[in-house]
Simulated assay, not measured.
Amino acid sequence: MKENKTKSIVIRMTEEEKDKLVKRANSVGKSVSSYIREVSLQGNLTTKTDIQTVYELKKIGANINQLVKYVIMLPVDENIRKSLTRMNEYLSDIDRIKQNLL
């Protein structure tokens, strides 16, 4: 049975804080009230976006491992340069994802 929510708490925040809160709630598909309840009572929410990010980071890590193994076996300098360039691209992807999480 669903319990009626009859109690309220008033908080004050700046317009910028409110906008940020609304965006966060929308990004996880929650109302602001529901988002605040869950975060304050349960801690941080694990969203589908977080799970997808972890999955992508694991894929990038696996690709980097494969490239390192490949580079170790390469005798030609040009091939090593190409592989290192690809590894730098993966590392840039990781930095981008990290910045989006913070």
Rank of each mutant, 00 (worst) to 15 (best):
V22N: 11
D50R: 00
L84M: 13
T6V: 04
M87I: 15
I72C: 03
S83Y: 08
T49Y: 10
S34W: 00
R12Y: 15
R96A: 14
S92H: 09
K2C: 09
S40W: 02
K69Y: 09
V54Q: 14
I72R: 11
D95W: 01
Y90I: 01
N44P: 09
V39T: 07
T47K: 09
Y35C: 07
I36Y: 03
E78F: 06
A25Q: 00
T6H: 09
E17F: 00
Y90T: 09
K82L: 13
R12K: 14
I97A: 05
K58I: 02
K20A: 04
P75C: 01
A25V: 03
Q52G: 01
I60A: 05
G61I: 05
L45Q: 02
R96P: 06
K18F: 14
D77R: 07
V76A: 12
L57H: 08
R12C: 05
K58P: 05
S8Y: 13
N44M: 15
Q99W: 03
T49K: 09
T53Q: 08
N63V: 05
E17A: 12
K48M: 03
K59D: 11
T53L: 08
N100L: 12
I60M: 02
K69W: 00
I94T: 06
D95P: 00
E15A: 12
P75V: 10
E56W: 01
L67Y: 12
V68G: 06
G43A: 04
S83A: 15
K58Y: 05
V76Y: 14
V39N: 04
L45T: 00
V22R: 02
I51H: 02
M87G: 08
K69F: 00
N4Y: 12
V28T: 09
N63T: 11
L21T: 06
N65A: 11
V10R: 15
E17D: 14
K7P: 00
L74R: 14
L102S: 13
Q52Y: 10
E78G: 03
K98E: 01
N79K: 01
T6Q: 02
E3V: 13
T46E: 11
N63R: 13
D95R: 14
Y35E: 01
M13H: 04
Y90K: 07
I80C: 08
I60Q: 06
L101A: 08
E16Q: 00
M73Q: 07
E16I: 05
Q66P: 08
L67V: 03
G29M: 09
S8H: 14
K20W: 05
V76S: 12
V39I: 10
S27G: 00
L45Y: 04
A25E: 01
K82S: 03
S31G: 10
I9M: 15
V68N: 10
Q42V: 08
K18T: 03
L57E: 00
T46M: 09
G43C: 07
L84V: 04
I97K: 05
